[in-house]
Amino acid sequence: MSASLELSLPLADVAAPAPSRSYWLVVWRQLRRDPMALAAGLILLIIVGAAVFAPWLAPADPYKASMIKRLLPIGSPGFLLGTDELGRDMLSRLMHGGRLSLLMGVVPVLAAFGIGTAIGLFAGYIGGKVNMIIMRVLDVFYAFPSVLLAVAISGALGPGMSNSLLALTLVFVPQVVRVAESVTTQVRQLDYIEAARMSGASAFSIIRVHVLGNVLGPVFVYATGLLSVSMILASGLSFLGLGVKPPEPEWGLMLNTLRSAIYVNPWIAALPGALIFVTSIAFNLLADSVRSAMDIRR
């Protein structure tokens, strides 16, 4: 009835809303002041950068073997990090190997993050019997140790990279759902959700504005912590021959093939393991920093 009235509102004197500082901006500022986060971030940046730009940066062809240059020590001329058991340049192989290792670390977690959050939000917000059924079904998966589950699924699907990605995703989904569901259940009972219901908002709107934002944070932090697990599991699968196949460079697989060289040149044999270790520690440290930065209530 007063639509025309609205249109004639003098928009000029409508007070400009004060610039609202977005939540993520606050988190980012907090993160920038945290030396641990900066160090972990820098290390990850170098590792990821080296992997992404490996084709351009790597000094040698990672597949080019040489029978006479096998297992050269670290610092040999032309081979900064030595050579592997087939005489291939370690530095180049490690850089190229990062591409697959990181991919296998990140993709399953991202996929599980998306799928798991959706299921967890749904189950948690609906609650009641539906929630119980979903959670009990997932508990069956949860009951197995993740390594065993990953190996079992991978083994059933057959070796290959896409199968191990799928296996890892299936391993992580129940874990993410659990976190998302429990946080949603907590948030759902808070007064501000009731206040939103009082405003007549639809369930979809409440989930989007009030639930999602408060659930995403803890789930995101949990998922960041899974990155290192995922990388290690992926390496493990490759090590067992269930993931990437030789001669493809991948850290876990390299660890496996260099096993025999451990008495000849232990430093070379340890390199892929060291990289897995450093990367997963960096992921974990970053996850911790993000967790504390996201708690802006302090």
Binding site: S20, D191, A195, S199, G200, G213, N214
Partner: peptide, 25 residues
């Protein structure tokens, strides 16, 4: 509500919180 903290969404600025209801409508 009684608990002034629990009844506000910690992730929204207070202006956003007040504007939410009318925007829903």
């Amino acid at each position: 509500f009684q608990d002034s903290f629990a009844s506000l969404n910690p992730r929204l600025t207070i202006a956003e919180t007040i504007a939410y209801g009318p925007r829903v409508h």
